[in-house]
Design a protein around this nucleic acid. Structure first.
Lengths: 219, 219
DNA sequence: GGGGAATTTTACCACATGGTCCAGGCAGGC
DNA sequence: GCCTGCCTGGACCATGTGGTAAAATTCCCC
């Protein structure tokens, strides 16, 4: 450090301790993601999270004043990253096949790099999404609608088969997330200790092939 | 044929009372499936399960002496039904396209009729399958191996594209179960209160189309 | 190096939960 | 009648957990 007149971060006021604070907060968030993924919301004790983060429970509660708040933060962090990549389809301005492939590969990449986040999210949805139904409605639906419109356009233009685009997305979501969420089952089936980058690549190859050819895009 | 004078073992005598017992046990199992699905293992209190089953906690514990035992029973019941249908592929002796379609439709049917069981199962797998890893290894793997061999045969015969059959099954599993496990998200996306038979049919249409055409089967 | 905020620790509580104990109720067989 | 297995409910307990209050300590900036 030894910088000049402390600056740069300009978080209004809380700039002094913010380095410690930020470090600890991210450590806590990572630990919480781990523990929530493995034990679910109810099964995760704040003590276990604090321990994994390397501090006392009380100290952790100093940064996140309740388990509920911490959980919300974890969910939000994950979902924001999620939704950001979710736009891939509407953004990569190439031909439909390339757009879909990018979308699929992108989702696989998230599953590979953030399996714990995916599991927390999955747990939440399975239990009826009590914490983020509204958030999904506000943020996921608009993006989905845009993507659906795009695919419907392709169908109207005769570029792809007349399938129901909703189910296309459900299938892509499910098939990509399963390699994160159900990794235990996949690993068991493949006889591996853990999934590696290569496995995700091959899964991506398969799904891309199936989807593109399946909707009539692959020549 | 009524009981002998000396109660030799427990197996024979319980005939009159066993009607009550059986009724209560199934009621408890159904209730437990519900509650475990919605709240996970840790989030489900035995009191909540008992209440949904319409009896006192103490009485429920008379039939299933612990939460753990009850959970095991729920998991086992679900999984047995699962695996039974899992064989569909190896059993329906028609052409590959029909076999695959039957398999896919069968899995959708389970998702539609047993969403809660599916959710309990999903929760368990996400958390690393601590309770049933061994059971899966013993019962799921052999069936999967047989199915994989079948598909590899089709590939060798040039009937389907040279894809990796493992990923074919992972995709089918994921895409069918998602309509049970992630129903909250699907319902939200479709703007429906709940999924109906028709929705599952259309999802089945889509997945069948994609898979068959995707692996080069659809004529 | 002193002031005061930011951080960490010590001690503790209220409460839900899984599970036990025990007293009693309800049938039929003698 | 009454004895004996099956069933049911009330009271209770040990434990783990989320959360609080406040003292103690560290750390930055002047």
């Amino acid at each position: 450090m030894t910088g000049n007149s402390t600056s740069v971060v300009e978080e209004i006021k809380p700039k002094r301790r913010s380095r410690i604070r930020e470090g600890h907060e991210t450590r806590i968030l990572v630990a919480a993601e781990d523990v929530f993924a493995q034990f679910g919301y109810n099964g995760a004790s704040v003590e276990a999270i604090a321990e994994r983060a390397g501090m006392s429970k009380q100290n952790m509660l100093y940064y996140f004043s309740s388990k509920e708040i911490l959980y919300h933060q974890v969910l939000k962090t994950i979902l924001d990253m999620w939704l950001e990549k979710m736009t891939l389809l509407a953004q990569a301005g190439e031909d439909p096949a390339a757009m879909l492939e990018n979308y699929i590969r992108g989702k696989f990449e998230i599953s590979r790099t953030h399996p714990n986040g995916s599991k927390v999210f999955a747990n939440e949805i399975i239990n009826g999404a009590p914490h983020l139904k509204e958030y999904l409605r506000e943020r996921l639906l608009p993006q989905l609608e845009a993507d659906l419109a795009l695919v419907r356009g392709w169908i109207a233009d005769g570029i792809v088969d007349p399938i129901e685009p909703e189910h296309l997305f459900f299938t892509i979501w499910a098939s990509t997330q399963t390699y994160a969420d159900f990794s235990a089952q996949i690993e068991l089936s493949l006889g591996k200790e853990s999934l590696e980058a290569d496995d995700f690549t091959r899964a991506g190859d398969f799904l891309t092939h199936i989807i593109l050819k399946g909707i009539g895009l692959k020549s």
